[in-house]
Write a protein that binds this DNA or RNA. Structure first.
Length: 572
DNA sequence: CTGGGGACGGGGCCC
DNA sequence: GGGGCCCCGTCCCCA
């Protein structure tokens, strides 16, 4: 009986256990099912997201390829229609405009059937900046600059386009005009050479060189190259500085961190490596309008380290160097600047490489950059905002990137007040704490730097509606338009003569006053106009760099030579 | 050669 | 911040 009861008990226990086990299994299954459902849902969502992202990516790729194609087409159109570039008066480009910055060349077509007589082209590589010190970039031209910017330049190279292609385009007829000897001269003569004389031959195929004293305007920064860290803000900021960011350095990257933001070299080697190829140097650039990078915290760059890279190519006083003018019949190619005088080892190296590179390479680089001139010129305005100053050790430095202002990292409020607000009215407003990223020149407020940097970038956002001329400043455009309107608001009280510019009137009034503020140190002659004195000085120096090919007669001024040739021509 | 004007580039300043 | 102006320097051209 007891055994029977025990068996029944065990049977009941077993059934209970079975029920419990079944219940547990069911619970587990339910849980698994639930989790599985959740997991599945998550997977589905992830897949959806993935698909969406993939679609987005495809769209972006489509967009990029379309832009690429458009730019290629545009470039070819530009190549065949050089009038898109800045127009300069005949011969004017070669002596005008001390482009205190990027190299500028003016190319004048060689005949009436090339481009319009008033359509030489101006090339600025000012935008060929290197990319490391961009902290904050503001660019109203980001959109206008479009997808092209300098990205196209890189694209061209990666596509293996003939590096001479754009040069051929750029020089237009000159390619077929320049006699071989001239080409060779151009190609082999180092940048440092000085040519004391000029021979200009109209109507013949010739190329001549001239050296002129010019303020050194080329910034070696143009030669600097970025390292291949386009998407890495830290490297972007500090890569070529050779300074390591502090461990706690933190940067925020705003805007569109697209790959074209920074166009970098194939090699990401050291600074010396990046200078090995000039053209590559020029192809390295960024599209500042796309990028907004804010330095969030302090880096531990020391002043010394930074100064190592902060050598300015030319001082404000101007380092007179010999520049070169290449006259190819009516084609004028001007290359300003020479070797930078203050370079660190790397920079000197770069420049040496650059100097040794032949002119065609140089032109090539220029062409690549010029490709973008039609598009709204980049506004490589790179500014530093000191959001969270930490260390006073941070010195203003400017190797090749940014507008820096004094104590930018340790005077937050002051900097904002003066730099980002109405600096001109604040206490130390006269302090030039905004430095040009190209030439280190200081300005008291941000806007001035923006405007000033157009000197380097060649940006001419203001175009005349009456003619094709473009200007970097609105007031200059306005002033120019008096040419079309005939407006001459400044009248001389003595003779009622009228002038379109106040300075012209002032200058004119010396006629009445007899004032001759410009005196010759050699003969004590005095002149009312500085230009006249300058011309007069050539008499003393015996400078007659312009030689007639017809009779060998030499002239001190091009206009004299031209007059002479006209007389000869009319005589014939 | 000289004198002088037209036009432009750039910096500084004011509103 | 932008517009405008003044001023200076310069180049180019012409008489």
């Amino acid at each position: 009986m007891a055994n029977c009861n025990g068996m029944v008990f065990h049977t009941q226990i077993a059934s209970i256990m079975e029920v419990l086990a079944n219940a547990a299994v069911a619970e587990i299954c339910k849980l698994v099912d639930d989790d599985y459902a959740v997991f599945r849902l998550e997977i589905t969502q992830s897949q959806k997201e993935s698909r969406a992202l993939r679609r987005k990516l495809q769209l972006l790729e489509l967009k990029v390829s379309r832009e690429r194609a458009e730019r290629t087409i545009r470039e070819r159109v530009l190549a065949s229609r050089p009038s898109s570039v800045k127009i300069i008066d005949r011969y004017r480009g070669m002596a005008r405009g001390h482009l205190t910055g990027g190299h500028r060349s003016s190319v004048k077509p060689a005949g009436p059937n090339t481009w319009g007589d008033d359509q030489p082209i101006t090339v600025d590589e000012g935008s060929g900046t290197s990319t490391q010190h961009v902290i904050l970039i503001e660019s109203a031209d980001a959109e206008a600059a479009g997808p092209g910017g300098l990205s196209l330049v890189k694209q061209e190279r990666t596509e293996g386009e003939d590096p001479t292609h754009s040069r051929d385009i750029q020089t237009g007829a000159a390619a077929g005009v320049v006699p071989p000897v001239a080409v060779e001269d151009l190609a082999t003569t180092p940048q440092h050479r000085t040519r004391p004389s000029i021979t200009e031959v109209s109507g013949t195929l010739s190329a001549v060189l001239k050296s002129e004293t010019e303020t050194l305007t080329v910034t070696h920064r143009l030669l600097h190259t970025g390292s291949d860290h386009g998407s890495d803000p830290e490297r972007l900021l500090l890569g070529r500085l050779g300074c390591s960011p502090a461990p706690d350095s933190k940067y925020l990257l705003y805007g569109n961190p697209s790959p074209r933001t920074v166009h970098s070299h194939q090699d990401s080697g050291g600074a010396s490596e990046t200078g090995n190829d000039l053209s590559r140097s020029y192809t390295t650039a960024m599209d500042p309008g796309i990028m907004l990078l804010v330095l969030e915290t302090q880096t531990d760059l020391s002043r010394a380290d930074c100064n190592q890279y902060s050598s300015s190519v030319y001082s404000e006083g101007g380092i007179d160097k010999k520049s070169e003018v290449i006259l190819i019949d009516e084609v004028t190619v001007k290359m300003e600047g020479d070797a930078p005088l203050t370079c660190n080892a790397d920079e000197t190296h770069l420049w040496e490489r650059y100097s040794q590179s032949n002119t065609s390479d140089f032109l090539d680089c220029r062409d690549r950059l010029e490709t973008n001139l039609n598009v709204a010129t980049h506004s490589p305005l790179h500014t530093v905002r000191d959001r969270d100053p930490v260390s006073p050790s941070m010195a203003p430095y400017n190797s090749h990137g940014s507008i820096f202002f004094d104590q930018v990292f340790n005077s937050d409020k002051r900097a904002r007040d003066e730099g980002w607000g109405g600096g001109a009215t604040s206490g130390n407003s006269k302090e030039k704490r905004f430095l040009c990223m190209f030439c280190n020149k200081g300005f008291s407020c941000l806007r001035k730097v923006e405007i000033h940097q157009r000197v380097h970038t060649g940006e001419n956002p203001f175009s005349c509606t009456q003619c094709e001329k473009r200007f970097s400043r609105q007031d200059h455009l306005k002033r120019h338009q008096r040419v079309h309107t005939g407006e001459k608001p400044f009248s001389c009280p003595q003779c009622e003569k009228r002038f379109s510019q106040a300075g012209d009137l002032k200058r004119h009034q010396r006629v009445h006053t007899g004032e001759k503020p410009f005196s010759c140190t050699q003969c004590h002659m005095r002149f009312a106009l500085a230009g006249n004195l300058k011309m007069h000085l050539k008499v003393h120096k015996g400078e007659r760099p312009f030689t007639s090919m017809h009779c060998g007669k030499r002239f001190s001024e091009r206009s004299y030579l031209r007059t002479h040739q006209q007389k000869k021509h009319s005589a014939v």
